[in-house]
Every structure is written in C-alpha cells, then in structure tokens.
C-alpha cells in the first residue's frame, strides 16, 4: 500500500539523515546528538506505553536506572566486560518492569500513575541507601578502558556517535514494526476503548503487561547505553525528574507517533541547553513547556503535523 511505502521511506529517511548528520555538523553538536539519540531510545520506550497503549507511567526512571546500574555495577563491582554487562542491564530492567507491571496493572488511571511514581521513588531511595556501591547522587565513573565491545572503543568520538545511532535505530525500527503488527494495533485499540477491545476477544491485561515489559526494557536499554557510552551512572537518573523527562519529550514530539520521541527529545535538549546559557533555573523551560503543551497542543509536534494534513504519519 502507498501508506506503508510512505511510512517506510520516512523511517529510512530519518535514519539516513541521522547517520549523515555526523559528517555535516560540528563536533560539539555530534556530542549532543549522540546524547539525544541515546535519550531518544528512552523516549521511544516510553512512547510505546504512553503513546500507543495509553498508560501514563510516572516511574520510568526506575527502568532507565535499572539498565544503567545493571550495566554500571556489573562492570565496576563484578568486573564484567561491556557486552555481558549490557545484557545484564537489559535483563535487569526487563525483570524490574515485569514485577512493577504485574503489581501496577492491578490499578488504572491516576492510581497507576501514583503507584509507578512510588515504585520509582523507592528505587531511587534504594540507590541512595546503598551509596557504598552506587555512590548515590554523586555517581560513579566507568573506566574508559573497559568501555569496549569487540575491540571498538566506544568512548571515541565517532564510535560513540554510531553506537548511539545503532541503539536508536534498533529501538526505533523495532517499535515502528511492533506498532504496525497485530499486537501493536491491539495496544492502540486498548488505548482507544479498553472495554471494546476486550469484547473483541483480546486479553487486555496481557497486552498491557507485555507493553509495560517491552517499554521498560527499551528504557533500560537506553539507561545501559547511556552508562556505556558516556561512562557514568548516578542516582539522579533514578529521580522523579528522569521519570518526568520522557513524558515531556513524548508530549512535545507527539505521543503515539513513531518519530515523535526523537523530535521531542532533540527539541527539549536544545531548549534546555539554550536556557542553561541564560539562567541556572533552566528547568523553568521544562515546566513552562509542559504546561503550555497540555493546554494548547496535547498532540505534540508530530501530532499537529498529522492533524494538519500529514494524515498518514505513523
């Protein structure tokens, strides 16, 4: 179908542009873009749950941090190599999301938001409590020498950029395929009208549960990738703020669209970057953007594009 062709060209186009940007923009922006792509993985994961399944979590920092600490601690304390540590991070975040999802999905709506918030807060405090290992807010550094996979030094400028690109491309394509699959269509149906989806014979609970796990695991991948590529893990990444940020990114870029998370993350990153040049109170930008978005553009940037003519936008 032509719709699918358009979608596919968009996806390929986005990835080609991201890869090409490395050769076009300055080193400073390369560094930013690498960070943006890794964080966009987080937004992609969040979007799967919030945008496509309609479940608003306020506790995704827990999954992000699970990936981050899973990788960081297994490297620094257990002496794992980068690749197995990456796996530990992913598996750990999958496990945490399986447990949290199992409990939190007994609730819905506002209660779901608060339960996820509380679990994440408990996780954050746990990271502080075991400060001996996690070094709390201060965090710890992962030595450059150990950040290697298959002999490639992931801390080197170009390698890091393309590793970040690889993580982003992986999650972006995976979610784009997933939401087009029957499973993803069912998630959208649940988001739109849960009762009707149930009466079409879908196991709503199981779909939501798998969505939480998939979303949590992708978020964990992002956390692990962040620690691996930037060599740092700290409790700040487990704090409430890091649960709010992916919500902001997705709202800004457009919930329930495949490119929304990337657009939102990039936009917010540069917005905050710009604001911090002017004031220390740069989070003011975050607050104002959230308020204005909920008031005037709940569909976000790509949602607005979709509404104004690009109806096919996936």
């Amino acid at each position: 179908m032509t719709g699918n062709l358009k979608e596919n060209s968009l996806h390929v186009g986005v990835l080609v542009i991201l890869a090409a940007l490395f050769f076009v923009v300055s080193d400073y922006h390369d560094g930013n873009l690498a960070r943006i792509m890794v964080l966009a993985v987080y937004a992609v994961g969040y979007n799967l749950l919030f945008g496509y399944s309609g479940l608003l979590s306020l506790g995704h920092a827990l999954f992000f941090a699970a990936g981050m600490y899973g990788l960081g601690l297994s490297m620094n304390l257990l002496g794992f190599a980068a690749l197995p540590a990456l796996l530990v991070g992913i598996v750990f975040s999958a496990g945490v999301s399986a447990i949290v999802g199992f409990l939190a999905l007994r609730t819905s709506g506002v209660a779901f938001m608060i339960v996820t918030l509380m679990f994440a807060q408990a996780g954050f405090l746990t990271a502080l409590h075991f400060g001996e290992y996690t070094r709390g807010d201060e965090g710890f550094v992962i030595q450059q020498a150990s950040r290697m996979i298959a002999g490639i030094d992931l801390s080197a400028h170009a390698n890091r950029y393309f590793a970040a690109f690889g993580f982003f491309a992986l999650s972006y394509v995976a979610v784009a395929i997933l939401v087009r699959s029957p499973f993803g269509r069912c998630l959208v149906a649940i988001r739109e009208n849960e009762e009707r989806a149930r009466m079409l014979g879908y196991d709503v609970w199981m779909h939501k549960y798998l969505a939480v796990i998939a979303s949590g695991t992708i978020s964990g991948l992002s956390g692990a990738a962040y620690a691996l590529l930037f060599g740092y893990a700290g409790a700040t990444f487990a704090s409430v703020q890091y649960s709010i940020l992916p919500l902001l990114w997705v709202l800004l870029g457009g919930a329930g669209t495949t490119i929304g998370p990337l657009i939102g993350t990039a936009f917010a990153f540069y917005l905050i970057d710009l604001a911090s040049e002017i004031t220390t109170a740069h989070l003011l930008v975050v607050g104002l953007t959230i308020v204005l978005l909920t008031l005037f553009a709940p569909q976000g940037i790509s949602g607005e594009l979709r509404r104004r003519g690009l109806k096919w936008l996936p």
Binding site: P182, R185, C186, E192, N193, L200, Y202
Partner: peptide
C-alpha cells in the same frame, strides 16, 4: 454504540477479524 472513534471503519472491523 462503542466503536473505536479515532480509528478508521476498516481498522475497527480488522481488529475483530485479526483476533479470530
């Protein structure tokens, strides 16, 4: 009436067909 208001008529029916 309980249809998926934001989805197309086609997708509304397809959801039922696909499940079975």
């Amino acid at each position: 009436t309980s249809v998926f208001a934001n989805l197309t008529a086609h997708e509304n029916v397809a959801l039922g067909v696909r499940r079975i």
